[in-house]
Design a protein around this nucleic acid. Structure first.
Lengths: 285, 285
DNA sequence: ACATTCTTTGAAATAAAATTTCAACAATAT
DNA sequence: ATATTGTTGAAATTTTATTTCAAAGAATGT
C-alpha cells in the first residue's frame, strides 16, 4: 500500500469533516476517481470546499492532483481483470477484453508453474541433441510443427510427421540415445503421446514433456516436464485456447534461449533460408 | 490494460493535429499529466478543442479521464518493460522477461490496429458461410490449421489442405459465392496466398485476410482485413514469433465471438466430439 | 475543371469544476 | 462572560473543460 492510503487511515489530526472525506477515499477509491469535488462533498455530507482543503492539507497542489494519485495507487494492480469465460451473446467489446485478459495471463501462469532452471536445462538438451523428434496431436500438433519450423530454420535437425505410423517408423529406424524427444500433450493422457514417449524411452532418447498436468502419466520417467496452462483454466467448456497459446509461449522461450546461446550461426541460417525462399519465388510473384 | 500508448504509437487514422497531440503524450507523458488542455494545445501548436476532441475520440469521457489513464499507465511497471529483441548470451531470466513482455503486448497491438467492427463483421461472414476455405504457408499454415480445428469442432465446414494443389483443386471443384475464404499471410505477398486470394475472387467467395501489412497487395479487393503484428516489430532478425501469436490471438477473438453467438449448439458439438474421441481410445490407453 | 459534400480545425462562447472568500458557528482560553 | 482561534459550507470567483460554429481544406462527384 502506498503512503497516501496509509496516511488516510492512520493520521490522527483530522477534523470531523476531514475524517469523513478520508474514509470515503479509503472505502470507495474507485468511485472517488471519477467524482468531482462537489459530488464527494455531497456524498460525505461535507462540501466541495472541505474536499479541496483536504487535498491541499495532504500536500497536493489541488484536488485533481490528489485524484490522480489515488488513481495511480488503486489501479497499479493490473489484476482486476475479468478472467471469466466468454458467455452467450456478449458484445464484441467484452469478447475483446476477455480474450485479451486471458492471453496476457499466460506468461505469468507459465512462469509461476515452472522452475527457471527447467527452461535452461531444456535448452541444453536441445542444443546437445543429434536429432529432435517431436510429436503431438490436434492442437499439440500445431505446437510440434512450430517447434519444427523454428528450430529447423536455425539449422537443427527436427523430425515431425503428422502420420503417427510414419513418425514411429522413422524413429525406430533412425533414433538413438544421442537424440531428444519432445512430447506435447495437453491432457497428459493422449494415446499417441503416451506411445511416443514409451518408444522414446525404449530407444534411450532424452525426453522433454509439455503438458498441463505435471502429475499426469506422461511426465513419468521423463527428463524435463514443462507445464503450461494452470488448473484453473482447465474447466473451460470449449476447446481450451489458452492451452495452445501457453505451449507456444513455452516454445518461444526455448527458441529465444537457444538463439541467444547460438546467436551468430542462427542469424546466418535464418538469412540464408530467407534469401533462398525469395529467390525461388521471384519469377512467379 | 496499457493499450493507450500502443494505440498512440500505432494508430494510423489520426489527423494532423491528432498526431501532434499523440506524439506529445508519447514523448512527454509526465509533463502532460499536470498540464491543462489549453496548455497542451499551445505546446503542440493546436488548441484545447483539439486536445479534448482527441481524448473523446480515444473513447474517454473527457480530457481529465484521459489524463488519469495516462498517469496510471505511465506509473505502472507494465509500461516500463523491455521490448528489445533477445541478444547474444542473455541469462535465462532475461529471456523469460523479454519473451513475456513481447507476448503480453500482442493483444494491445492487435486491438489498436483493428476497428472493433472488423471483428464483428468477420464473425458475421463466418457464421453465414456455407463452407470456409482457409490457407496459409509456414507459420501461417499453423494458423490455418488452428482455424480448421477450432471451427470444425463447433460444427462449421472448414476446408484446409497442406498441399496447395489439392487446396486449389478442391476449391475449384466445390466452392461458390456462398462460401468464405480466409487467407493468412504475414508478409502480404506470399506467392500461394496471393494465388489463393485470386481464385477466391474469381469464384466469388467472401474474403477475410489476416496480414501484418494492411497496405499490402493481399488486402486489395477483400471484404475484411485484420492486421496483426505492428510494423515496429517487423525488424526482428529472427523468425518473428509475434506474427504467429498475434494471428492466433485474432483467431481466438473470432472463435470466441462466434461461440458467444452460437452458445448452445457449439457447446453441444464440443461435448459430442470429445465423448467420441474418448470412446475410441478407451480400450487402447 | 468545377461544384458539392464531408472533414478538420481553432477562436469564441458556454458549461463545469475547482478554488477562494467570507460570514457563521463552535471550541477553547482567559 | 468574552476574546481568540479554528472549522465549516454557501456563495463568489477563477480556472479549466467542453461545445459551438464558421472558416479553410480535402475528398468526391459531375
Amino acid at each position: 500500500m502506498n503512503s497516501l492510503f496509509v496516511r488516510l487511515s492512520s493520521e490522527k489530526n483530522f477534523t470531523a469533516s476531514e475524517r469523513k472525506i478520508a474514509n470515503f477515499f479509503l472505502e470507495k477509491p474507485q468511485l472517488a476517481i471519477d467524482a468531482t469535488a462537489e459530488k464527494i462533498g455531497k456524498l460525505t455530507q461535507t462540501s466541495s470546499s472541505a474536499v479541496v482543503r483536504f487535498a491541499k492539507k495532504l500536500g497536493y497542489s489541488g484536488f485533481p492532483a490528489m485524484k490522480l494519485d489515488i488513481a495511480v495507487t488503486t489501479n497499479s494492480d493490473q489484476n482486476n481483470r475479468d478472467l471469466t469465460e466468454v458467455e452467450a451473446n456478449e458484445p464484441i467489446t467484452a469478447i475483446l477484453e476477455k480474450t485479451s485478459a486471458r492471453f496476457q495471463t499466460i506468461p505469468d501462469v507459465v512462469t509461476a508453474q515452472n522452475e527457471t532452471a527447467a527452461f535452461a536445462n531444456a535448452t541444453k538438451l536441445i542444443e546437445n541433441a543429434r536429432h529432435i523428434f517431436v510429436y503431438g496431436v490436434t492442437s499439440s500438433s500445431l505446437v510440434a510443427q512450430d517447434i519444427q519450423q523454428k528450430f529447423t530454420r536455425v539449422g537443427l535437425d527436427v523430425i515431425y510427421h503428422t502420420d503417427f505410423h510414419q513418425m514411429i517408423t522413422t524413429m525406430q529406424a533412425t533414433a538413438n540415445s544421442q537424440d531428444l524427444a519432445i512430447v506435447i500433450s495437453e491432457s497428459g493422457h493422449t494415446f499417441e503421446a503416451l506411445k511416443f514417449k514409451k518408444i522414446s524411452l525404449d530407444l534411450g532418447l532424452k525426453i522433454i514433456v509439455l503438458t498441463n498436468d505435471i502429475k499426469s502419466e506422461i511426465s513419468r520417467e521423463c527428463d524435463i516436464t514443462l507445464t503450461t496452462t494452470s488448473q484453473q483454466f482447465d474447466k473451460v467448456r470449449f476447446a481450451s485456447t489458452t492451452g495452445l497459446l501457453s505451449q507456444l509461449y513455452v516454445v518461444d522461450i526455448l527458441f529465444y534461449a537457444y538463439i541467444s546461446k547460438h546467436y551468430q550461426e542462427s542469424q546466418q541460417k535464418v538469412e540464408e533460408t530467407r534469401a533462398r525462399i525469395n529467390k525461388i519465388y521471384d519469377n512467379h510473384a
